[in-house]
Design a protein around this nucleic acid. Sequence first.
DNA 1: GTGAAAGCGCTAACAT
DNA 2: ATGTTAGCGCTTTCAC
Lengths: 358, 358
Amino acid sequence: MSKHNISLKDIARKLGVSIPTVSRALNNKPDIGKETKRKVIELAKALNYEPNQFAINFKNQQSYIIGVIIPKIVHHFFSNVISGIITEAEKSGYSVMLFQSNESYESELKSTQTFKRSMIDGLIISLSDNTHNVDHLKNLQDHKIPVVLIDKVTDMMEASKIVCNDYKGAYDATQHLISLGKRNIAHITGARKPTTTKERYRGYKDALIANGLPVKEGLIKYCDLISEDKGYYEMKNLISQDDRPDGIFCATDPTAIGAINAIKDSGLQIPKDIAVIGFSNWNMAYIIDPPLSSVKQPDYEMGEKASALIIEEIQNIRNEQPITFKTHVMETSLIIRESTVGKKDLNSRDVLNYKIIE
Amino acid sequence: MSKHNISLKDIARKLGVSIPTVSRALNNKPDIGKETKRKVIELAKALNYEPNQFAINFKNQQSYIIGVIIPKIVHHFFSNVISGIITEAEKSGYSVMLFQSNESYESELKSTQTFKRSMIDGLIISLSDNTHNVDHLKNLQDHKIPVVLIDKVTDMMEASKIVCNDYKGAYDATQHLISLGKRNIAHITGARKPTTTKERYRGYKDALIANGLPVKEGLIKYCDLISEDKGYYEMKNLISQDDRPDGIFCATDPTAIGAINAIKDSGLQIPKDIAVIGFSNWNMAYIIDPPLSSVKQPDYEMGEKASALIIEEIQNIRNEQPITFKTHVMETSLIIRESTVGKKDLNSRDVLNYKIIE
DNA sequence: GTGAAAGCGCTAACAT
DNA sequence: ATGTTAGCGCTTTCAC
């Protein structure tokens, strides 16, 4: 309708004052006459004045935008992380720009470039499984754009990191199976590269060792692709082995669900013959029959924390304060359902029945 | 490391030429000496020059950012929509800024304000269930920021809209049950407000009518809250009624899953006694036992389309072209699993076994 | 308390 | 083919 958005200049002209005066009035600066201020504010409101943010961002060289790169949005863990990031960012007036790498290094790289166009103030990133080089991230740091790593982190660069205690989560899950009397516990891992996978594997192994149980190579299966199919397949293999396991800890819920189906199809009982526990507590975990015990990650909270951290670093940089990198390790909790303890140890049947052990 | 990012001015000075000359050289403009151009480009590369996007955006009054507001990120349908939006936007060099309304009108309103700070070029929005007023969106349009509505749309404003054919999807689902010989088909709806819910309800009703079946109020249950618990509860009610249904069409998968559990707990057979079909084909649909038949929405494609449309409108506005509003209706497909046809009509047991009917 | 002037980095129009 | 000028909208500095 109006030809152009109205600017300070318009207000100044109509009021017969100068542009800086209008600016001062509208920004609660000192050195402004009470009456002038009133008139300016009044007219601004009447004209529906809105400051041109392009100009302000340009002047401040600041966008109030946080960039986020994650491997996959359609993913229970990550969508919760994002949700936490956005909610926390909004509290401080920051907006979130989202990219997904689809586990591709090239795509991650490209996103980093595109970000430059929007001049993000900081970046939160969960590395793709195929990222073997982090120069693109160091480059951002060199340009005074702070980077916070979340979940899929790396030692190749110095930065603040948010991780959950994958090691302890895996240890607890394995210990849980052992406490139930299981002695021959198998493990299906995730993709080989990510530190998360390695930590879960380490937790599994250490729990066995701590309990004086042998670590058997034959009971450990590698699943680069995280899917029910792969879990089903590997579980079938395990069942057909001479040395059949009596319990299994899967590094992801989807593989655990595949494992459950394989066990059921083989005519074995869960958890009597083989107990199953997964990791991440996907929303499908309690849908499967029997409901799947799992390790819950503090996904949303990790996102919140990452947001708070990046904003802190952004502000420190602006104020020329030194920033110190911190690594935050957040704790998991054990969600116990029927796939490990059976119905007898839980209360009467309910759609959402489980015990939490922190 | 460097005191400041290097600018055209720096290059100009070092080369003893003027700033516009440098600009011309770097932007492939005509009217530039071949040799000068070479030297400029060379130095720019050597100095690692990167244009200041704040300045460019300021000059162009354009951000290359698309705003997206959806009710919930942690949601199978929406996370797929977002994924489609981002992928398509990236192709044209646009970035995506994401907000969630959590089904709150106030939150939606606030996001619209925050967007202004980042000066988005266009907005894609799926309305919250509680949005009863769209002045905030019309306001954007008045500021020449195009708005595209997706999935949760409204008649309160003129804009391009992307919806899926909820009516036909629901009709097909109901017809599917009827074709299986079911005659007393119940329906659990979603929240009352959204047009999507109403369309699904209408599809259900029309399918009954088209087949000469009565529409019975007693078989229709209203579920404002979409949850397994609510589905479980309403299904239990339906089962205890004198007029027990032999099939049920649920407007959402979570309620359908609750319904399945209720039927199983009542000792009835699925699909023999009661067949169940849901809507949206959540990832949990094939996990439940028996696997749930459902109506698949073209979620990712809807996102892609929305992105393409908003970019088209953004560009039309820039070029002072008139924009015409279009409504795109995208078709659903029927995913048939055991909850309606039983095992006999599907191939041998597989984790992911279903038939698709487009 | 207010105005004049300058500048953020870039590009477009005009002049040479 | 290159330089000069001007301006996008805002804020900051310095005079008065």
